[in-house]
Structure formats: C-alpha cells, structure tokens
Amino acid sequence: MAAGTIELSMAELREVAGYAAACAHPALAIFERARPDDPRPRAAIDAARVFAEGARRTKAIRDSAWAAQRAYQETRDAGQAAASEAARAAVAAASAAFLHPLAKATQVLHILGPAAHAALAIELDTGDPQSGLDHLETARGLAGPVVVSVLTRYPHAPSGRGRAGELTRLLDASLRPR
C-alpha cells in the first residue's frame, strides 16, 4: 500500500454510505418544505442508501451528488439557508460512496459531513442550536463499529468551515476513542 493511503473495503464503503444517508435523511423535510418539486437531494440520499444496500458504485451516484450540489447552490442563492444546508447534507451523503483511501483530514468530511450539514439545517430551521446538537447525538448513536473504525484511520476533522465545520469536529471528537 502506498504511503499516505489507508485500507478501505467495499463493505466498509457501504457502511459509511449507509451511515451518511441515515444522517442526512432527517434534513430532507426542511429542503422539501422549501422546494417541494425538487427531487435532487432525495435522489442523492437514495443513491447512497441503495449503494449501501449492495448496488454497484456507479456514475449515477456521482451524478446525483452533482445535481444535489446545484440544488444547494440554488437555495443558497435564494437565501434559503436551512434548505441549502439540507441539500449539502444530501451532496455529502452521495459523496460518501466515493470516500478516498487518502490519509487526509478532508476525507473525514465525506464520513461526517452529512450529519454536520443536516444538524446545521435543523439549527437554522428551528433557530435553536440545541436542536443541531441533538441531531449530532443521534448521528453518534447511528455510527456503528465499522464507521468508527474507518473514521479513526483518518486524521481528525480539518479546522475552519464555519458552523458546519465546528459541528463536524464535535461529532468527530465524540466518536474517537479517548
């Protein structure tokens, strides 16, 4: 194995994608309330879930992530902050299927980004930071041993990235053994 890389099996990628989809899913209601006729974030989360359940990892998953990215940009530009973060959670969920075996902190965003962006969407929707922290606690409970094992092969989550980054680091710290 090359220096700076880690081992990742397809089974582990499926576990991570399933976790990502489960963490992103609660924020879908926020997006769909703002954009009821826009199926892109749901399609991205569904693509991650279907991969996690055994489907092949195909370009269709990547395409669904790019489509959800456009939904994120459109809601962001329209000033729909909670909906845009919900779409970002969906983008991150679909992207989890393509977690790279590179020992870089940014790869942690593929694992924990769906939960962090969903938590931020929930915070923005409710106006209550505790609601986002509650979602992180739920995400912590959803992380099985395989997800934690994969996470701990990577460096800690990177600094920066605003509130979503802060939420990512909180979840990261709560999942790693002390």
Rank of each mutant, 00 (worst) to 15 (best):
D63M: 09
H135T: 09
A115C: 04
T126W: 00
L133S: 09
V147K: 01
A86M: 10
A3P: 03
I30K: 10
L133V: 10
E123F: 01
A43E: 15
T152H: 02
D46L: 14
R176S: 11
G113T: 10
V150G: 07
Q73I: 11
E74I: 11
A17P: 08
C23G: 04
A52N: 06
E166I: 04
E74F: 08
A90M: 08
T126K: 06
L142Y: 02
V150P: 07
P155C: 08
E74W: 07
A34P: 08
E15V: 05
C23A: 15
R169C: 01
E15P: 04
P41C: 04
R14G: 01
A44Y: 02
L99Q: 03
H135E: 13
F51D: 09
A60F: 07
R57D: 06
I61C: 10
R14T: 01
H117M: 10
Y154L: 14
A86R: 07
V147H: 02
V148W: 00
A67V: 06
G165H: 04
T106K: 14
A24K: 05
L136A: 08
I30M: 11
A105M: 08
A2T: 03
R49F: 10
L133D: 14
R14S: 01
A20D: 08
A29M: 09
P155F: 08
G162H: 05
L133W: 03
R178F: 10
R70A: 15
L8Q: 09
L112T: 07
G160E: 12
A20H: 05
A47N: 11
A22N: 09
A43F: 09
A157C: 13
E7N: 10
T5N: 04
A94Y: 05
A44P: 03
R153D: 12
A116R: 05
S64Q: 12
R88P: 03
S159W: 00
A29L: 11
M10W: 00
P39M: 13
R161F: 13
E32A: 01
A48P: 00
T168P: 06
G18H: 00
P114W: 02
A90F: 08
A65I: 06
D37R: 13
A92K: 13
A121W: 08
E32R: 01
G132S: 07
R40E: 13
L28T: 08
S149A: 15
A97G: 02
P101M: 00
V148S: 05
G113K: 08
R40F: 02
C23P: 02
H117Q: 13
Q107A: 11
G160H: 10
L151I: 02
V148F: 00
A34F: 03
L142I: 03
G54Q: 04
S84A: 15
V50R: 15
A65L: 06
A29E: 14
L8E: 09
A83Q: 05
L136P: 05
H110F: 06
A103R: 12
A97H: 01
A86D: 11
A65E: 12
R163V: 02
T138P: 04
E137A: 13
E85Q: 15
I6Y: 02
A68T: 02
R88Q: 15
G79I: 04
T138D: 10
P158S: 11
L120M: 12
V50T: 15
G113I: 08
A116Y: 05
L102V: 07
G4A: 04
A83T: 03
V50D: 15
G18M: 01
A86I: 07
D37K: 11
D46E: 15
A71E: 13
L142A: 10
T58I: 09
R62P: 00
